[in-house]
Design a protein around this nucleic acid. Structure first.
Lengths: 238, 238
DNA sequence: AACCCGGGCGACCATCGGACGCTGGTGCC
DNA sequence: GGCACCAGCGTCCGATGGTCGCCCGGGTT
């Protein structure tokens, strides 16, 4: 029906860089175009394409090993540069990443989900509607090793605010940047505008997420759900 | 929004019997009314209502024990009488259960899901859209010990045919009953009309389930999904 | 009474969604 | 260079969806 997804089979040239710490400036990437509109990567040679996965039996050891040993000998990956609060369009200076880049990671996950869905449909398997472990695994093996579950889950509500009210999200970023607040403080501050949006929506935070095309694929964070619930209880006590 | 569910708080009188093997004839229950339209049970005293569940820490030992020891000393529950192929409206004779009763079990699970959803909303927790482990647990602690996951999953596609094409489902039941086939054979036979329905729907079996109010809450069985996929592949080879 | 057929469902498994806190990168002094 | 801060993400955890096959109920001989 209308949920058929077409992906180019030979668009292998537009893959994401293997590691943003390894030379390529992520912000340049963001500004040098091809950022949103392109297919994440081609399919050829993905581990998921060897049909062992149909038996749910692909050797984990082998995969793990491949990842660990990439780069000659068991030296482990560098962690990503930390995020700092940046204004919209602003480049992060020094060994930092900006928030535009953070939000782009969410868009990339959306693309990876589309690919996973496409693969699932071709194989007649269950088709995920959300960004699941499987999607993170697919991202990793597609070379996007800079994407991982704990990070993405940590900032989901920040991305939610960005999607639902870019104006307000931008204002918050500017304010927190000017005040010299750290990322943790900004992240905390993102909760409250969302609670207000939930209130406007009859306290249905799931509904708020589901109505938005890009948010629908993300699980509502537990903490946001709890904040909404507590705030709702407070209201009804008055 | 439109997904608010209201359940009576004092409709405690219409609980299901604790155990269908223990005296009450399930078929009489089915025919003596109150079958579809009533609330499954009241809420008072459910283990889920002590708010320990908020911490995800309710003591499993205690629950397990309660179940095992009900009925004076550690004798375990009798298993339910096996199903036999019956025509619509037909009573199963002897120590057997009929297919009308089987399908009613699915309706009961739907009711239990509504209760779980209601509870989840009151507590501001994640709200399941499908019949999950949580729903089976809730059914069990509500006294519906005759409902269990393996059984319900085993016959989902039979219930699906009953929902989607009661005419055809009834014809199949009659035919298999006349031929003296056992439940396993009837169960197998239920797959193929569903594959045909999937074909009519662009091979989107999930779509077929999701379009139907009562089916939407059940996971598509793996075997049905695979049958559809294989049949689709066969088609496209021609 | 003995036997065998067949199916109910206890219990297991891989994997899931979710969370914590250690490690180590980073900027400041 | 040394230190203190803080956040990235490896790794764990309880619970989930899914399944298999043991055990035993039931009908037949």
């Amino acid at each position: 029906g209308d949920n058929t997804i077409l992906l180019s089979q030979n668009n292998t040239a537009s893959s994401f860089p293997l590691n943003l710490n390894a030379g390529t400036d992520p912000v340049l990437l963001l500004q040098n175009g091809g950022r949103m509109g392109s297919t994440v990567s081609g399919f050829a040679g993905f581990p998921e394409n060897n049909f062992e996965d149909l038996h749910g039996k692909t050797c984990k050891k082998q995969k793990r090993r491949r990842l660990k040993e990439s780069g000659e000998e068991g030296e482990d990956r560098q962690r990503e540069h930390p995020f700092i609060v940046t204004e919209p369009g602003e480049l992060a200076r020094g060994k930092k990443n900006g928030l535009d880049y953070l939000f782009d990671l969410y868009e990339q996950c959306g693309k990876f989900l589309l690919e996973v869905q496409q693969i699932a449909k071709e194989r007649g398997e269950k088709c995920p509607t959300k960004v699941t472990n499987q999607v993170f695994r697919h991202a990793k093996y597609s070379g996007a090793s800079y994407i991982n579950k704990p990070k993405m889950r940590h900032y989901v509500h920040c991305y939610a605010l960005h999607c639902l009210d870019e104006e307000q999200s931008n204002r918050l970023r500017k304010a927190y940047k000017e005040r010299g607040e750290n990322v943790g403080a900004w992240r905390q501050a993102c909760y409250y505008p969302l609670v207000a949006k939930a209130r406007e929506n009859g306290w249905d935070i799931d509904g708020v997420f589901n109505k938005h095309e890009k948010l629908r694929i993300w699980y509502v964070p537990t903490k946001l759900r709890q904040l909404c619930h507590h705030e709702k209880s407070k209201q009804s006590h008055l």
